[in-house]
Simulated scan of single mutants.
Amino acid sequence: MTVVTPGTNGTLKRATAEGQLLELITFLQMAEANTAKNPNARNFISGTFNIDSLVFSGSFTFPVITTVLAGQISIGASDYLNNHGFVAGTGGTFISDNPAQYLLEIATFLQNREADTLFNPQGLNNVSTTIDGDTGIFSGTISLNLEMILTAEGKTEFSAKEYLG
């Protein structure tokens, strides 16, 4: 189980990295569809839910700025949405109030876990990312197995299945 701590009073509520990733992709998709939040009609995030296979597949591509200071490399995502309302909250595993930077944090966290056989003995690779230093673009793909329920109110709810220890 890839337990993470959601920030107190933060936008995301799931207590797993996989769950927060799915929540964040959903948040970004909704914000990109809102012309007040995305007046330049940027479409950096895409995703589909396959109900037959219970798999979410997504991709992302957005600009980043890479800097070197005192021997440390820092990568920062452009905050491309206006008044998005996203907050990390306090005391959580991930700390950025910029949702694109938060995505960079979660994706890097999951990739580090995928590379460690202690957390990923089955060798799964559900999150892949690249940073192109020439273009300043962070991009990647996501594949998450889903759990689906029909609530007593008749709503369909999806959540990401945990796949890492």
Rank of each mutant, 00 (worst) to 15 (best):
T5H: 06
T5W: 09
P6Y: 01
G7S: 05
G7A: 07
N9T: 08
N9H: 01
L12E: 02
K13Y: 13
R14P: 03
T16P: 00
A17K: 08
G19D: 04
Q20I: 06
L21R: 02
I25E: 00
T26K: 07
F27C: 06
A33Y: 04
A33F: 05
A33I: 08
K37Q: 12
P39H: 10
R42Q: 12
F44Q: 06
S46L: 06
S46R: 07
G47T: 09
S57H: 07
G58W: 09
F60G: 02
T61S: 15
T61Q: 14
T61V: 13
F62N: 05
A70E: 11
A70L: 10
I73N: 14
I75G: 01
A77L: 02
D79K: 02
D79P: 10
N82E: 15
H84T: 09
G85C: 00
V87C: 10
A88H: 12
G92N: 02
T93D: 03
F94Q: 11
N98D: 08
N98I: 05
A100D: 08
L103I: 09
I106K: 03
R113N: 07
R113Q: 04
R113A: 07
E114N: 09
T117V: 08
L118N: 14
F119K: 11
P121H: 05
Q122A: 14
G123T: 11
G123M: 05
L124T: 05
N126G: 13
V127S: 06
T129H: 13
T129I: 09
T130P: 14
D132P: 12
F138D: 06
S139I: 07
I142A: 00
L144G: 01
N145I: 05
E147S: 02
M148N: 07
I149M: 11
I149H: 07
A152W: 03
E153G: 05
E157D: 08
F158C: 08
S159K: 15
Y163M: 09
G165E: 10
